[in-house]
Nucleic acid binder design. Sequence first.
DNA 1: CAGAAGATCATCT
DNA 2: GATGATCTTCTGT
Length: 192
Amino acid sequence: MMKRPLPKRALLGTAPEAARALLGKLLVHESSEGTVVGRIVETEAYDETDLASHSCRGRTKRNQVMFAQGGVWYVYRSYGLHWCLNVVVGPEDFGAAVLLRAVEPLSGQDLMRARRGAIQDRDLARGPGRLCQAFGVDARCYGASALKSPLFLAGPARSSRPRVITTPRIGISMAKETLWRFCVADSPYVSR
DNA sequence: CAGAAGATCATCT
DNA sequence: GATGATCTTCTGT
């Protein structure tokens, strides 16, 4: 499969811009266990103006990498059990990131299944916690480059311009009508 | 220092 | 639709 590196400029805009731009792109992890590839079909935008973002109250030990310039991974543990994978976006000192919520498995399904259990392709990486399990993502990825490291983003083999659906956040941010979730329309691999 | 909440998921009814 | 697993971070005293 042909893989173009993702241009860094795709990660230097706002979180909603980056979240939309990442749909249809590839997530690749090359590890000693093998290589897995997926097409990103669902993302979520966060930044420090958003009360639901980890960066909304300044830097902490956990979120410090969110304040780096776009292009590195922010990994955190969710509910004490799952890992969640984010791409840091935007300029340095502005805490913003895009959560990768679901990918369509393209390659390495056997390895994903070995990590996830014997389940159908649709469920291998549908949801942020499952995605990390299928891709072997954990705290070791924290702060690593999202463009040049074993875990990286790439352009699709064939230019794709997926139809995108955006969902406003319910609750707090709805007042300012922030766009929140982005997914590829009609993909059976979105988390819901 | 105690307590609550949380960018989730699998399992059960 | 409800519940429990499990742990880091933040808040209040």
